[in-house]
Design a protein around this nucleic acid. Sequence first.
DNA 1: TTAGGGTTAG
Length: 624
Amino acid sequence: MAAPAVVFVSPAPLPRPSTVTEHRRATLRGLDSCRSMPELRQYHSRLIRLGLSEDNDSVGRLIKFLALHPSGDLPYALHLLGLLPRPDPFVFNTLLCALPSPAESLLLYSDMLLRSAPNSFTFPSLLKPISAGRDIDAGRQVHAHVLKLGFHPDVFSQNNLIRFYFSCGLAVDARRVFDTMARTDVVSWTTMISGLSKLGSVDEARELFDGMPERNSVSWNAMIAGYVQCGRFKNAFELFDRMRTEGIELDKFVAASMLAACSRMGALEQGEWIHGHIERMGIELDPKLGTTIIDMYCKCGCLDEAFKVFRGLSCRGLSSWNCMIGGLAMHGHGKEAVKLFDEMMKEGVIPDDITLLNVLSACAHAGLVSEGRRYFNYMVGEFRIEPKMEHFGCMVDLLGRAGLLDEAKQVIQEMPMDADAGVLGALLGACKIHGNVDLGEEIGRRVIELDPLNSGRYVLLANLFASVGRWDDAAQVRRLMNDRGVNKEPGCSTIEMGGVVSEFIAGGKSHPQAREIYAMVDEMLERIKSEGYAPDTRGVLHDMDEEEKENPLYYHSEKLAIAFGLLNTRTGDTIRITKNLRVCRDCHAASKLVSKVFDREIIVRDRNRFHRFKGGECSCRDYW
DNA sequence: TTAGGGTTAG
């Protein structure tokens, strides 16, 4: 128990009884707006002098501050509770939701049953830490008490039970609570929608959404965010349009959800529109919303705009810095990312593990090997951040990409935990880049066993064999993949034009302009041949199945998207493409030449990073 | 007192 944090300011005489009530009122008002511990101590001493140490209203307010304020003192709050002869439910409820663990909350609740009595605020408070701690047993006990003590008609308690069951992944139990409620409100429905979406049952969520008796912007956003979280952007956009048709005002939460959709899709025009709308409506940019906008611009390839928003934010969160550093990393601007990190440190912002991950990633993408090593060492030595799996993965990528395969391997051997498929995958990728088939084979087989459902792992190993003409081994890996029922993820590129996102699958012909697009690809290839283009088939398997034989290199999805872009934009316009896989060598070489021959800037976001093709060069300087 | 938004290596 912490020492009583009481400061006796001055031994003032006790006021006359007639004025105690006034003093009490003034003190209660003051406590409600109390902002710091020193201020609280002043009020506490005044309460003692007024003889109010056992007054629930007064001490309850002290406890509320001590329990909930960031600079509070929870042990002391509990101490004060112990001193109250007849604590009321309010005091208990305040502490119930502030305790850090379900076990402690439950213990306090049993104390409450002896010294006070639950009211309708008790169960929501109690379920908060239990949901956060995902303690199924504790939650079920509370559920039993809700029923036993007759609180089942209370909507707040029931809504919190729904939330509790979802937080533990128990959708059936959540649904049972919802279905048996005597009365539901918009929060009950929205909690169901949000909970179902988070567990992946977004269609069931939609059924509920369509059947809701009333909706508010929170409900709309829960459904829209549900679609965004599971990658169903088209549904998200459709619902967003419907929401606007129905005259529901776009608030900052819906804006943030839609911006996240734009980020994931690379839909710059839509993202710009929402950003403009936020400004037009005068919606305040809090650090979260600001970060979402920065992320949208970074992921849509507009670093300058991202920086403008970043610099303009009156209040930056750590995430804003992380996001901007990560954005620079993704675009291969390693030195700028490191510079921004230094600026952040100068401003006294304490980095976290994500900051360091982004800094290391920036070094990896830009080939800044010694800087990367230095920051990795700083991480432990200076910042006291324990490196996680991801940081080791990043180091392996940094070293491996630079050709330091032995050192990368050493990092894996010396890691305090067993390397996962991601870390080994980084080394496998490096083996592919540097043509180290022996090490690649050893690592590749381990990666496949660790991550047997990921088609990319098989393809990488098979391509590694194919690149040195080991066709039988390549075919064997490919067969293994097929035997296990793993399908290769088809290459897919999207391009946004006039707010409409068009999608191209490698070799696909379903687009209405397909004929023109294919003709344009042929023209493109013909024209770049004169600049020295020769198809690079090193990345192509020769044991492809029938479907893929029809989809050769020439019609990879990004080539189709570029052709579509050339056909449908004006001379000089930048063509922006988002791809689901990594750009292959051949498309990379072709894109560089197309940017030169057609005098176009082409920005491609692939699975890992951005490539900005201009004048025959790529921003990655072929280091990717 | 309950429901909605942000950053994360390859």
